[in-house]
Computed example of a mutant assay.
Amino acid sequence: MTYCVAVKLKAGMVFLSDSRTNAGLDQISTFRKMIIYERPGDRFMCLLSAGNLSIAQSVREILQVERLDDGEDAEPLTIWNATNMFDAARVLGSAIRHVYERDGESLKRAGVDFNVSMLFGGQIGTEGMRLFQMYAAGNFIEATGETPFFQIGESKYGKPVLDRVINPDTPLDEAAKCVLVSMDSTLKSNLSVGLPLDLAVYEAGRLSSDRITCIDENNPYFRMVRSTWGEKLRQVFDEIDRPVWDGSPTDVPLMGCSTRSQPLKKIATPKEKLI
């Protein structure tokens, strides 16, 4: 399994992925799930993948040569000549369908689902940044101000902190810290997600990035985040008052705040008590 998250902010974009792939308890491997497509000064694009590893790798390879014909007089569209991220996402969708048409039936006969999902975001030229979530059918949705981040893979463990912190005005470094905390929560709760991690931070308008790193178990910042987050969570938990049933005026009682003071209760009859 895997966990990937991508965030689009006014200040830029943040991408994070783990690298664990497993096909059973005794077959755990490491594969990179992030790939950067960059032409400095012209375009910066980042692709994160989850799902069946062989399908994801095939899509990534085909994407670099995939050509989408938009008409007889139009130059075939690729990720390298697309003039906007929407067209680049269309090329990615075409690459996914290409792999399905080539391998879908044989995978089905082998009992393997065509399971792949991807996050694809970046900036081309003077157009604003865009972020897409791609599905196995090659279709996609785009992030908005109301939904500034996407997750794929084991998303449930890391989502609460993103919901509480991330909004379009979040600074880039704060967002990077938040996605690392989100990843730590996932690592803590799910063994199918594992180090090392790939992190890319893109500043709006730069059309390149020098803030791309691989994080392993010895990375001092991530070790600090993991230990501090755990300690602070425990500290905040300890500072919350325990529930009281009939408190003094200074206590916050657990009972008495609702017109329905008790759940439905069944009282056993004398006959039932003897059974």
Score class of each variant (00 low, 15 high):
T126S: 13
G145V: 02
Q57I: 07
N190S: 06
Y202M: 05
R260H: 14
C46V: 12
W80S: 14
R164E: 13
L180D: 01
L172F: 02
R102E: 15
F140I: 03
L199Y: 01
L47H: 10
T186S: 04
F149P: 13
S49A: 15
P168S: 05
L9V: 07
Q151L: 08
E239K: 01
D18A: 03
Q151E: 11
T126V: 00
S155Q: 05
E105A: 09
R234Y: 03
T186N: 11
I267C: 03
N115Q: 04
K159V: 04
S209H: 10
M134I: 14
M13L: 10
P220F: 00
K188S: 04
D216A: 06
F44E: 03
D241T: 03
D163K: 10
K271S: 11
F120G: 00
D184M: 10
S58Q: 12
R226M: 12
V236A: 14
S58M: 10
G194R: 03
G51T: 02
F222S: 00
V193M: 09
K273Y: 08
Y221L: 05
D26E: 14
R20P: 09
S248L: 08
A56R: 03
D70C: 14
Q64Y: 09
K156D: 15
I36R: 11
T30V: 10
N218D: 10
L199I: 00
V161L: 07
S106T: 12
I36Q: 05
R32A: 14
L187Q: 04
